[in-house]
Design a protein around this nucleic acid. Structure first.
Lengths: 355, 355
DNA sequence: ATAGAATGTGCAACCGTTTTCGTAAATGCG
DNA sequence: CGCATTTACGAAAACGGTTGCACATTCTAT
């Protein structure tokens, strides 16, 4: 029914195999036949059937992606949209397309991936950090199927190609920024500890405090969801403390927005009474009131580089495993103010105990 | 190399065709063999090769989507992410997957679509309203290829299945809301007139004014991009007018955010000095200061219903063309305030001329 | 008991490519 | 000019499924 390679071959008066070679731009084809065949293709409006092609050549020029299910919080976060954008750009540049599926639960997701992989729909996979990952990763490694993960894998990070930020350093710097501003009572508002991002960033936070000889206070470390609500709850708790912090580091802009709005409701002025440093630097952060000082982690690049390295792996299976670190940069806006630093011994009296 | 249908057949001691029928859950297969075959599949960890399957059966269980190129403004807008979410959900529910490509330009996009369609990669297409559409649509119609568009098509809307809001009514209502609040000087901040959304909403705006006998003032009608910057520019212009409006209808939340921030810079208080009604009701709108009164157009449903009807068309080519209208609803927040209505004749003196 | 229908399964063609292998013609070399 | 390469292309076998048709049973009705 549709025009096939045979039709082209017939019109150009060559064998189908020759047409195939012309498409693949094979070297051993004379310029003359090339022209002849191309003209025939043009004339018939021929476009190769990708399924047949994939079947025969065992490759699809497609990378797979499992999306968070639509109920998932991640989807709400501009982070996702941005990383998708990077992936999209990376695929496009390399003439790859993207194949997406969703799973409502971990097992659904797992099955979806199996269908993609065994069904030969995709040549490789990009994994967004999540909790299912583990089973998935071991499955993919067992099959020696190309994949890269965005974020740091929980296990065997050295053996898995992944692209990530240097989250501990980034958070250390963010915290030091606040310390330089004179802050000593700095609270940390993070996401679930099941996520490596949180672990790393919490680590960076502690490193900064330790380095500055500031005691770490457990009440100042809170965990919520990567959502506005998460930020709101955290702030309520913090503001109920006897020793209110003078500044906050928040691991996500959306959470920070929640923080801001709750602070506003409580009548606490930002940055006059409390300073806020946030993370991710998505569009929102410059639109809030006040605009957020936020750590830009180049989300787009996270997606872009992940795609690039995935394609490298696909096209050269011997490619060594890599860890790619995307640079970060603090973007200063108006959510922080200077603070006359408390002497450390006074902090102690205030009930700070070292962890 | 991988396990094929033949392997399963051999193990279950039946013909490959029987295995195929078991997979398809064909009626003419006895329960006994079904069990036998399923056990064999299980045992071998068999998963059908989708390419082979697609090739043979001429169907992919996949719907195609062309994404805005990563530079595109649309991508910045949460609208996109939300509609994608709806599409994702719709596909998933019907056991379809999604295939994405991007084009950097109109011709690239067009070619990408051709590759998808002729390459038989997808069973149908969802089109997000944009300007290329026209060539695309006529191409798809010529080939009788299933597609639905989200938004209203520029041409032949009656002959094309599409899902949209009743944008003129929605905007009429939004404007009337302001009128009920006593406002008479109402400005319209919209996107490009090349977009049907803008056309429809502008129409609704005018209808509302006409119905209330309020003259339409050209200086009050502005067009910018669907971005924050678009809103910012528009406001600057409006505030430079001798007759400042007392309220604004803005066709997109992101624009409205720009409006808000510019207003803030100019020291104009919302809602005390100027009221703002916005559109789309994305997450942002409740996080702004003040929270935006915004028309919820159920973006998720736009995507979801589009997918549903596309799949209906795919599975029954005789499905009649439909126009699906997604309901809207004004969500009141704190960006509007009452205003003592000016008598209409006073408006006239203020230089209002009827359009 | 037997024609005819219903049921269960196998055979083989087909979906539209890619790719290995083979061969004829063209070329290089002594 | 004869022989060994190289070059340009064709034949046919995969790739891994689906499906129309034929055939053999078993069931139902007469």
């Amino acid at each position: 029914m549709a025009v096939t390679i045979r039709d082209v071959a017939k019109l150009a008066d060559v064998a189908p195999s020759t047409v195939s070679r012309v498409i693949a731009n094979h070297s051993r084809i004379s310029e003359a036949t090339k022209r002849k065949v191309k003209k025939a293709m043009e004339q018939l409006g021929y476009h190769p059937n990708q399924n047949a092609r994939s079947l025969a050549s065992q490759s699809t020029q497609t990378i797979g992606l499992v999306m968070p299910s639509s109920g998932d919080v991640v989807f709400q976060n501009p982070f996702f949209s941005m990383v998708l954008q990077g992936i999209s750009e990376g695929s496009h540049k390399n003439k790859y397309a993207m194949y997406l599926t969703t799973g409502k639960s971990d097992v659904e997701t797992f099955e979806a991936v199996i269908r993609m992989v065994q069904g030969k729909r995709v040549d490789g996979l990009i994994l967004l950090n999540s909790k299912v990952e583990d089973k998935l990763i071991s499955y993919l490694r067992r099959r020696d199927f190309p994949f890269v993960v965005i974020g740091k894998p929980f296990k065997d990070a050295e053996e898995i190609t992944h692209v990530d930020n240097d989250n501990v350093r980034a958070m250390r710097e963010a915290t030091e920024y606040l310390i330089d501003y004179g802050h000593r009572k700095i609270a940390f508002i993070g996401g679930s500890l099941e996520l490596m991002v949180t672990v790393d960033r919490l680590d960076g936070y502690k490193q900064a405090l330790n380095k500055a000889n500031i005691p770490i206070k457990n009440e100042y470390i809170l965990h919520g969801e990567f959502l506005r609500e998460g930020g709101q709850e955290a702030v309520s708790e913090l503001m109920a403390l006897e020793q209110r912090p003078t500044s906050l580091v928040v691991v996500d802009d959306l959470m920070a927005l929640g923080v801001l709005s709750t602070l506003d409701e409580l009548g606490v002025k930002v940055p006059e009474e409390i300073s806020v440093v946030s993370f991710n630097n998505v569009l929102l952060s410059e639109m809030s009131k006040p605009p957020l000082t936020s750590m830009d982690i180049n989300i787009f690049d996270l997606g872009y580089q992940a795609t690039r390295s995935l394609i490298e792996i696909i096209e050269n299976r011997a490619e060594p495993t890599k860890r790619i670190i995307i640079p970060h940069k603090l973007v200063e806006r108006q959510s922080c103010s200077h603070q006359v630093p408390l002497p450390l011994d006074e902090l102690k009296e205030d009930g700070f105990e070292n962890l």
